[in-house]
Design a protein around this nucleic acid. Structure first.
Lengths: 153, 153
DNA sequence: ATATATGTCTATAAAATCTATAGTCATAAA
DNA sequence: TTTATGACTATAGATTTTATAGACATATAT
């Protein structure tokens, strides 16, 4: 289950993905639009910038904008930055490895060997989906629903 | 990332899966063997029993035992009982649905529409793996490693 | 130059969740 | 009828998540 923090990140990123290239958006606007506590969002955006997904301009007329095209920003990269990880157990993490303290023998641990399958599948799907998918699917669904309304008139 | 509670559950279940059919195991033994706080494990085992994965006998000579063959107990069912869920966002959960409070319009939410793919994949893999896999893979790896040692002699 | 708008950074607090413990009760076997 | 055992309730401690405050740095416009 992803945290609120990650959902807030998705919302802000979706807003930025819909913003014309060359324009930046104020933290305050992202916060208001996404109904996100401003100071908390500040911290989230900073993480995303340090993670290489966002760029910023300081000073008057400043704001945030995407570092890459939405189709190049994977859901996996976002989750890794904010949750620290994708792996279901920390002993399988590449970005944030740690030995599980409850574990006797990592090499033969049945939990680890089995969760490895989960980890592979989860990484694959999260790295195959992008911010552009989030935007596109939402818009496609909006169109589909508005058509249904049209027919019913 | 699964919690310690779920890892403790896996350890206890693996112990029970290795126990001959017809025998029950004391909470105290499961706790000692898995290095798990006994009272915490008590609560975990109770959850697993209420979830239908375990059976128990009360009184002298009592203890816990599996309600089904290890190959019939999926990783997904275990995680659902202890984490409450598998879904990456609660608005996609079947066992524990709730509207995401940050969400404006669930039907067209891009986060939800995209995470739905993650949810499907995650459910599939977790429901395809079983407690028997955990036991088998661990034993297979133990055998493989002991053979490697043999060759080096 | 200077005032103003804006992101950056550090520190801390409030809330929620996870982990752990204590104690009493119910049940079954010896 | 004593003893071993799980069942249940309550609560406390630890950790993580969420949120806020305030001082600072930087760039733009006048």
């Amino acid at each position: 289950m992803i945290t609120k923090k990650t959902k807030y990140a998705f919302k802000a990123l979706i807003h930025l993905a819909k913003t014309p290239i060359g324009q930046q958006v104020l933290i305050a606007d992202l916060a208001r639009d996404g109904n996100i506590p401003k100071k908390f969002l500040e911290f989230i955006l900073l993480s995303l910038r340090k993670g290489g997904l966002l760029l910023s301009k300081v000073g008057r007329g400043g704001g945030y904008y995407l570092a890459h095209h939405p189709s190049k920003i994977t859901i996996g990269s976002i989750v890794r930055i904010l949750e620290g990880d994708i792996a279901p157990v920390q002993c399988l993490s590449t970005t944030n490895y740690a030995r599980c303290e409850e574990c006797n023998d990592e090499k033969t641990c049945g939990i680890r060997l089995t969760m490895a399958d989960v980890n592979v599948v989860l990484s694959e799907v999260m790295d195959s989906l992008t911010l552009a998918d989030m935007v596109d699917r939402s818009e496609a669904e909006q169109n589909r629903l508005s058509k249904v309304v049209d027919f019913s008139i």
